[in-house]
Design a protein around this nucleic acid. Structure first.
Lengths: 197, 197
DNA sequence: CCTACCGATCGGTAGG
DNA sequence: CCTACCGATCGGTAGG
């Protein structure tokens, strides 16, 4: 029990190494033998810790999804303007991703390899999440904070594109903290690049 | 010869169907037997038209890359401001993607399955392309068009994230034309969502 | 966690 | 464009 919270359980180690492998080579191109080698065991031994290759992917995808949902619910509960909720929602999303950029990359790029009914469930969670951000934009337009002629679908998809690609290029060695990164990203998307005359 | 320019060559048909398959299931999860079935032939017959599975991927990736480069060179040659070059560059990128959203999706998502030395060459082309857009942003800051405190790497990666995800969610059935879509996207990224007070 | 192994499927070739 | 086929590799199981 003394070492229990100091180390990852073997199952957690398996999932963590799998995340790195899936991020690097993609889910389909990653074999259970590759994964076993990273852990220094035989492929067959993996199955004492996990039921199947897809179970690992499910764990990675749905654990991330739960964190994103929790972050958004917290933002929605705050008594601030729609444009401020959008800003906080972006920062929260970046913070969640920053806690595990590898898992975030898998979440974004590999979820399509989930089988049914998991894939359907995942996509429903995602569309719900996106629609709640879209609502912030629509509310911001209604309140006059945002421009009236915005295509809200284009805006929200542009937003998520930017957020979701971050794990693919952002280096964890960067000195910039997640809060600061999220703030800059939100500022860029909300205020644009242009100098206000 | 009369029908030669009215129909796609068999090789082009193979590549086109492969692009759809790769977009849908990913390169690694797409089998040559899947592809053959889409064309109504046996898997072994594919090899009269192409040398290997990877040759198809190479064709798709490098053909798209050539189109993007041509579009950017055209923009750079114009006697306009840096911020206008950025705007035209975005519109050009969207136009190129719109000509074949399927190939654009493969270009973006599956290029990592290229083997060496093709992968290296591809990544060099991409970093060059991105850096030229980054130059537009830096020039725009220098001229006072853009804000002085912008993180140019963050800005350019955000830009490309938005552009590159477009093929994954944008429906070809949409009534909006590429020119208009590119214009809106450029406006959003350059001017932001916020109402200028 | 290992050895031993299974049936299925993979990309691709030979030869016509 | 087909039939027939190859060696390699896949995810996973049995039994310890």
């Amino acid at each position: 029990m003394a070492e229990a919270y100091a180390t990852l359980s073997r199952k957690e180690q398996v999932i963590r190494q799998a995340a790195e492998l899936f991020k690097e080579k993609g889910y389909s191109a990653s074999s259970m033998r590759d994964l076993a080698q990273k852990l220094g065991i035989e492929a067959a031994s993996l199955y004492s810790h996990i039921k199947s290759k897809e179970e690992i992917l499910r764990t990675l995808c749905f654990d991330m999804a739960a964190e994103f949902r929790a972050s958004l619910a917290e933002v929605e509960s705050q008594p601030v303007s729609a444009s401020e909720k959008l800003r906080l929602g972006i920062i929260g999303h970046v913070k969640v991703m920053s806690k595990d950029l590898t898992a975030a990359a898998v979440f974004m790029n590999e979820h399509r390899h989930l089988s049914q009914p998991y894939l359907r469930e995942f996509l429903l969670l995602r569309i719900n999440y996106i629609n709640r951000f879209k609502q912030f934009i629509e509310d911001g337009i209604a309140s006059g904070d945002f421009k009236k002629n915005i295509d809200t679908k284009l805006a929200v998809m542009t937003l998520f594109s930017s957020l979701n690609w971050l794990p693919l290029w952002f280096s964890p060695e960067s000195t910039i903290e997640p809060e600061n990164l999220g703030t800059q990203l939100a500022d860029m998307l909300i205020n644009g690049l242009k100098q206000n005359a």
